[in-house]
């Protein structure tokens, strides 16, 4: 991988260790570049936005997506493959009565292929510990206040199962195209810490 000029001790330690791995033939530079390329260029939340927009305009796609996301993603040119091991994606739908939110209490499991790299707060012990016991409070911290009678479902991801929220389509969007609808979706909406 290309060198950087970060003088911090940890940056130096990482450079040294990487050099040792390369010298032992355990990794090679082009392989590292490829791994990073796949992560930063192909995996972005725009993928999730597209899936949501399609589900909003195509009821049959939506039904297939909720039933079996892994087999439905290829319809929009996406897949849950390419990760380090097979993962089942569950798409959970927000409704008038139910709001969904995703966490990984054990570590930081996240559908990177659809949402891109996870934000630091998602990986923080503060979020992971609190969203399961006080979800309503946590959502309020993110600026999302739900009616008292809305049921909140918290989904705990793991190595085999990943979750993505299908937000409710905002009102007043009947005239928007699929591409315009995709622009209305946010990363936090796909995690459940925002309405859309």
């Amino acid at each position: 991988m290309s060198d950087d000029h970060d003088d911090s001790p940890i940056a130096a330690q990482v450079r040294e260790f990487e050099a040792v791995l390369e010298a032992r033939g355990l990794v090679d530079a082009s392989e590292l570049d490829r791994a990073l390329e796949a992560f930063t260029h192909r995996a972005t939340p725009a993928n999730g936005f597209r899936v949501v927009a399609r589900a909003w305009v195509d009821a049959e796609f939506r039904a297939r997506l909720l039933d079996d996301a892994n087999s439905t993603l290829p319809e929009v040119g996406l897949s849950m493959g390419g990760g380090l091991q097979p993962q089942v994606l569950h798409v959970v739908e927000n409704t008038a009565d139910v709001h969904n939110v995703v966490v990984c209490t054990l570590c930081s499991c996240y559908p990177i292929a659809l949402l891109g790299p996870s934000p630091t707060w998602y990986k923080s012990t503060a979020y992971r510990s609190k969203v399961v016991s006080h979800p309503r409070e946590v959502l309020e911290q993110f600026g999302l206040t739900l009616p008292d009678d809305t049921e909140i479902r918290v989904w705990d991801a793991n190595a085999e199962s990943r979750y993505m929220v299908l937000p409710r389509r905002p009102s007043g969007t009947d005239d928007l195209t699929e591409a315009e609808l995709a622009e209305r979706v946010t990363r936090n909406g796909l995690i459940g810490t925002a309405a859309v």
């Binding site: 940056a11 990482v14 990487e18 990794v27 791994a35 992560f39 891109g116 630091t120 503060a126």
Partner: peptide
């Protein structure tokens, strides 16, 4: 819970190296 607006995928190049490694 601290939310960082417009957070980049990695905060430093060495983080990207660790990820790739």
């Amino acid at each position: 819970i601290d939310e960082e607006l417009d957070e980049p995928p990695f905060h430093a190049d060495w983080e990207a190296h660790v990820f790739a490694m």
